[in-house]
Nucleic acid binder design. Structure first.
Lengths: 136, 136
DNA sequence: GTGTATGCAAAGCATTTGCACCTCC
DNA sequence: GGAGGTGCAAATGCTTTGCATACAC
């Protein structure tokens, strides 16, 4: 969804489009990866922290942004860039990502076998990166 | 590892075996699933919270317990019961588990495609449980 | 104008830390 | 007896909340 479309959606639902909401929204949308609440607070010193919390909650309710759980806690991202699995190295902390397309067949297999339809994007996946694996 | 073996391991590394450590250890070991720090604090009212934090850190360093990330935050479990994936329904919150064996093919696929060796036990896996999926 | 959103300050929690005292070895 | 562990209280940091004010519509 484009920024203007989101703003229209806000209006359509009776929400107001304030400078703070524009700023927070723009910040999340321009971030390629993930951004924590505290990151937003730091990048927008003029916006109060409680406004950041309230706005991200609102945007998540609207389906515009989503959060994922990484080792350090929750981080937000554009809802539409929700199509990759986050890999975090347990040893060195290196982060990598994997398009969900590459594991789609297995997702379906798991759904068929267990009845549970997994979404591997909401929680990160821990493990060992290639480098640490090679290092033993 | 059995309780007595763990106590020996503590002693072997020069750590002391106190009543508090015995109590905290017993609490985690007797818990079939996961237990949060706050759960331990509530179940052992005579042990100070800071001792619980310090002891769980120590036991994790020793490899006796491990923590996993669920929607609500970190939870501890016996290190040896580390062989199942935690499934959490994003809609109803229902928890289920899956032996790691059932997703071994996924682990291998990811390792092959990305070089990253995933451990699906450290973070939960979100998704839709069979019931919520049926409900649409 | 009016009702929603924001800022501010305070409260609420979980977690960490410093230090005096205790206790396990 | 002495190092290591614990309890306590305070500090820290993140998040939430209540309320008066500001401002989008």
């Amino acid at each position: 969804m484009q920024l203007e479309a989101i703003i229209d959606a806000l209006k359509a639902r009776g929400h107001r489009v304030t400078q703070q909401r524009r700023a927070i929204l723009a910040e999340v949308m321009r971030t390629p990866g993930h951004i924590s609440v505290q990151d937003v607070v730091k990048r927008l010193p003029k916006v109060n922290a409680s406004t950041v919390y309230r706005t991200l909650d609102l945007l998540e309710d609207l389906g515009v942004v989503a959060h994922a759980h990484l080792e350090e806690g929750a981080e937000y991202h554009r809802a539409e860039s929700h199509d990759h699995v986050h890999l975090v190295c347990a040893r060195c902390g290196r982060r990598d990502s994997l398009p969900t397309g590459q594991i789609a067949p297995l997702k379906e297999l798991i759904a068929r076998e267990s009845g549970f339809e997994p979404d591997f994007t909401h929680f990160a996946v821990s493990g060992l990166c290639a480098r640490c694996r090679a290092a033993g």
